[in-house]
């Protein structure tokens, strides 16, 4: 099929890994995003500094370097540090976990800004009203702030998702069997690199198209009561 001598099914298997890594990393990124945004807007100075340091560093370093640093660098660094104390520690990060963690952390930094913007759009009067009614901070967060912020964050999060899913291609560098690595194997084995990479490109275009449609659908659904 597709002139790739049977390798196209291998690429499809890679697609499952790509989507799985992408979804898990997105989940992690959103979690980090919510907590990061709360930290950035909190009254605690330490929390604000930590959150700002995190977003500033992550956004200043290329994804590829972060990925290589986490996958190859951190295990050896930890090993060397502990070896100094005569203690043997082994960190065995498999490519899947390293990929999810790295992408989650990188795009978590982007989600922080998205959620911060979204929290800011919830009218302050509502929060004061809720507090006046005697709601505890946690209840205010999950009853008032979060549900509304989620709606405002859909366009921003969709952007993050589309960047993230494309960035999964980088994980091929640390040998996870996702679309890109399977395509590379196919390109080398069949010696038809253009055909193989075009096939991969079309798969990613497909993901982008579906994501765009999903975004439209969600935006329509969640702005229904507001027009």
């Amino acid at each position: 099929m597709f002139g790739l001598e049977g390798y196209s099914s291998a690429i499809f298997t890679g697609l499952q890994q790509t989507l799985l890594v992408g979804l898990l990393a997105m989940l992690l990124a959103c979690t980090i995003g919510v907590f990061g945004a709360l930290a950035k807007t909190s009254s605690n100075k330490l929390l604000r500094v930590v959150a700002s340091f995190y977003t500033a560093t992550i956004r200043g370093i290329p994804e590829l370097i972060l990925l290589l640093l986490i996958f190859y660098g951190v295990p050896t660094l930890v090993q060397d540090v502990f070896a100094g104390f005569d203690v043997e520690v082994i960190i065995d990060l498999n490519p899947f976990v390293a990929g999810v963690v790295t992408l989650g952390f990188i795009y978590g930094a982007f989600s922080v800004e998205v959620f911060r913007g979204a929290f800011g759009q919830v009218p302050a009067g509502q929060i004061e009203a809720a507090k006046a009614m005697g709601m505890r901070p946690w209840v205010v967060f999950y009853r008032i702030l979060f549900p509304q912020a989620l709606r405002y964050s859909i366009p921003g999060l969709s952007n993050v998702w589309m960047l993230l899913i494309k960035a999964t291609a980088l994980i091929s560098v640390i040998q996870l069997d996702e679309v890109m690595r399977m395509t590379k194997i196919a390109a080398n084995a069949t010696q038809k690199p253009f055909t193989a990479y075009l096939f991969a490109a079309l798969l990613f275009l497909g993901i982008t198209l579906v994501s765009m449609m999903l975004q439209k659908y969600l935006e329509n659904k969640y702005t229904r009561g507001y027009r």
Binding site: K166, A167, T168, A169, L170, S172, M180, T183, K184, A187, K192, P193, F194, T195, Y197, L198, A200, A201, F204, L205, T208, L209
Partner: peptide, 22 residues
């Protein structure tokens, strides 16, 4: 749409390795 919808790595490989096919 093509350049925004696909990973940069794919584009690089498509041009670098792909051009060899032609």
């Amino acid at each position: 749409f093509f350049f925004r919808g696909t990973p940069l790595l794919v584009q690089l490989f498509l041009v670098y390795h792909g051009s060899g096919q032609f």
